[in-house]
């Protein structure tokens, strides 16, 4: 009985805090995406030819975020049943956008006008054997082009 109460409490805490942090994170992502919209990130390998000439430099941004207790619980159940794991969708979406933003912020500091050949790497971080699921790391990197 005590176990059940602890479980429900943890689920409620996870749900409450998880939702709160997710919505604040999304709000911040949207705000920064608007301001950094001036620096396009392009996944193409061929930089623009001709004038003006550019200085190029590698820029990167990475982030590790974790899923809350509530979502982890749902994911565990979903793993038995199969199907779309909604728990991890927002996690990955947030992680990628955050990593790209951090990369763009670095490009912004360099005064770059765009980032070329953007690439993304995702890794899942395993914490011990019993709690396999948890956090992902996303790394975004590309070449910042600064007009000179």
């Amino acid at each position: 009985m005590a176990d059940l109460i602890i479980l429900v409490t943890l689920l409620a805490l996870g749900y409450g805090f998880g939702r709160y942090s997710e919505s604040t994170h999304y709000a911040s992502i949207r705000k920064r995406e608007k301001t950094l919209n001036a620096i396009p990130a392009i996944a193409s390998r061929i930089p623009p030819q001709g004038n003006p000439n550019f200085d190029s430099q590698l820029v990167s941004g990475s982030v590790v975020i974790s899923v809350d207790y509530f979502k982890r619980f749902i994911a565990g159940l979903r793993n038995l049943v199969g199907g779309r794991m909604t728990s991890y969708e927002t996690l990955l979406d947030r992680a990628r956008r955050e990593a790209i933003l951090r990369m763009k912020e670095e490009a912004d500091r360099l005064g770059a006008s765009m980032v070329f050949n953007l690439k993304l790497e995702t890794a899942s971080i395993h914490k011990g054997r019993r709690n396999k699921i948890g956090s992902v790391e996303v790394l975004a990197y590309g070449t910042a082009l600064t007009p000179n």
Binding site: P40, R84, T86, L92
Partner: peptide, 23 residues
Amino acid sequence: MEYSNPEIPEGINTSKTNPLKEL
């Protein structure tokens, strides 16, 4: 050639399900 970064609408890479209902 023009380079721009248009805003992409939300919710394409995430499903709109109620987590409590799913639980």
